[in-house]
């Protein structure tokens, strides 16, 4: 039986690297008495796969791991057993049965991830940066150098940014969900609007929906670095606290997206 487990990784846990999270999860299953299937071969190991590794320093509400269980357990039993020995910062939120097969693996399906970025209080950027950010996105091409293991290549990340919006407790300042052509840039076309006249509280959080997965994956830092470089701002690592909000599969057809959170692809086990 293949089960998709969802958990959050918060607080101090953000300093734990992905490799150690894998080690953690294996031990957590043993402590919880969850019988995981072992692979065959010379050095048997637990049959499990993580959907999308999380960079160190980021928190997340939606981490996914698919595991094969020897015997059937209910969703509640799995979640409770794992939570029992979980350290502060790790919280298991759901476990659902998913179909077996490579095409259904979380790792294969991942196509989008949403992130919330909050600027840290020390040494913040000028208050006008959100406006400029929105304008900056309003271009067909954003070229960045992406470092591979051996090569560096220039790529256009603009199509990989699905959505960007600022939220500040009130309504979103702007919504980039609409197609590029119909969207109005607040600065270019309507310089008075909306920031200067309505004077909303300074935006706090930037929500970025980015392409994710095995081949077209971009990290939120990459976007912010590109923005900083192109608008002559200083980019320091750790300027933003970054949380991964959700990870999606794309069930759309013929070039149209239909994003569904990974957990919704499974069935709750009674």
């Amino acid at each position: 039986m293949r089960v998709r487990v969802k958990y959050s990784k918060q607080g101090l846990m953000k300093f734990i690297v992905h490799l150690d999270m894998m080690r953690y999860f294996q031990k957590a299953c043993r402590r919880a008495g969850i019988d995981v299937v072992y692979t065959e071969g010379l050095s048997p190991h637990m049959s499990m796969s993580f959907a999308l590794p999380l960079g160190v320093g980021m928190t997340s509400d939606s981490e996914y791991v698919d595991v094969d269980l020897k015997s059937a357990l209910s969703s509640d039993v799995i979640v409770n057993a794992l939570n029992e020995s979980a350290p502060e910062g790790i919280h298991f939120t759901d476990a659902r049965q998913i179909p077996v097969g490579k095409a259904h693996k979380g790792m294969t399906l991942v196509s989008r991830a949403d992130y919330t970025l909050r600027m840290t209080k020390e040494d913040p950027w000028d208050p006008s940066w959100p406006e400029e950010f929105i304008c900056w996105l309003d271009q067909p091409e954003i070229l960045v150098l992406k470092k591979g293991k051996k090569t560096e290549k220039e790529m256009n990340i603009r199509p990989l940014i699905y959505e960007a919006k600022f939220v500040s407790g009130g309504p979103p300042v702007t919504d980039l969900a609409r197609p590029l052509s119909t969207r109005q840039s607040p600065l270019k076309n309507n310089p008075e609007q909306p920031f200067s006249t309505q004077q909303p509280p300074p935006p706090e959080d930037l929500i970025l929906s980015l392409s994710a997965g095995l081949d077209r994956n971009i990290r939120p830092e990459l976007v912010m670095q590109a923005f900083a470089r192109q608008t002559k701002r200083e980019y320091q690592p750790f300027r933003f606290l970054i949380n991964r909000d959700e990870v999606y599969a794309d069930l759309g057809k013929e070039g149209r997206h239909r994003f569904v959170p990974l957990i919704d692809l499974g069935e709750r086990i009674p």
Binding site: G11, M13, F15, V17, K27, P87, E88, P237, F238
Partner: peptide, 28 residues
């Protein structure tokens, strides 16, 4: 969650293996 840290976050993220300094291990 309340996060109490003796080291500033940028220090933790700039040193090798920040996990050494957290004290949040299982059974701590």
């Amino acid at each position: 969650m309340e996060m109490k840290l003796a080291l500033p976050e940028e220090v933790l993220l700039s040193v090798e293996k920040p996990e050494r300094y957290l004290g949040n291990e299982v059974n701590a």
